[in-house]
Amino acid sequence: MDYDPMVMDDAEALGPVVKISQADSVRVKYELSNADIAFANSLRRVMLAEIPTIAIDLVEISENSSVLADEFIAHRMGLIPLNAEGVESLLYARECDCDGCCEHCSVKLLLHAKCEGDENMPVFARDLVPFGDRINQVVGTPVLSDALRQGSLILKLRPGQEIKLECIAKKGIAKEHAKWAPSAAIGFEYDPHNKLRHIDLWFETDAKTEWPPSDYAEWEEPPQEGEPFDYDAVPNRFYFNVETAGNLPPDTIVSEGIKVLQQKLAGLIHELAEDEGGDGMNGEYNGPRSPEYGTGADGFGGYTTPFGNGGNQSSWGGAGGTTPYGTTPYGAGQSQWS
């Protein structure tokens, strides 16, 4: 296996290249080149959906005389961006030893506002105050990134109206609920001239005049007049635009995204290595003496349906050496994989 997995393009033995064109507190725009679309897309997906952040998950409303319904407000609370810096030190509530929630897996926030003046009173995210024990003073505080440092508007109260609620914010990922997404948006673009024809542009008379060119169009060579279509070409330069919702700095989103991807891989490598030390790929779910086979017909334990190969009654996975698999060198109780 003497090949270099880093070399994405045979013509250029450079490996992936990253160029940043804009970076501030809200967004980072960068170009990833000499990489494959499969990897670039994995990075995009992982940044969108799998970076742990913190968001309000439970709301207990003790007073609500506003015009908005309790559940409506509860939903709005969930979507308020909370600062997720240092969220690594927080546990997932389902993995915490506590009963329900504690300072190791959650942050409690209180919102109490009453309109006592004669004018309508807006209630902002800054009015949300963390209380109780906290793992650190940053994680779980509302994001106040606007000029007035008010945060997002939660609701408005008329004179005499009151809102009082307690929230529990927990760690989570956007795969479970979009409120845990660290990014407001991730721009992902390649091939601005559509040379690869991955996009079929709709047009009335002429696509070229009707579609505005992308910002990145000038970064790449436009197609020559009458240039033949290169059906071997693959995308090679990817333009990312990572915009934060405020909970994590944009460049942290990128590095965290890569980290999550690596953790995913490390977990699988670890599991494969463990399996090899044991009785092969079918694992030890039912103990090493499981009646299941080295073919891994029933890695997940105890299905006895006629379709799951693991059942002794099934037409495929019988326990004796009489099945088509049982007599192979690979299926006799112990796999040859280790």
């Binding site: 992936p16 990489a35 890569i258 891989l265 490598i269």
Partner: peptide, 28 residues
Amino acid sequence: TAIEALEKGLRDVQDLCDVVSDKFIDAR
């Protein structure tokens, strides 16, 4: 074997992640 290829694949993606991560930090 297929399983070796799988393991190698996982490690290769990991290496690729390392490189892109380093390159990003440098670029930043």
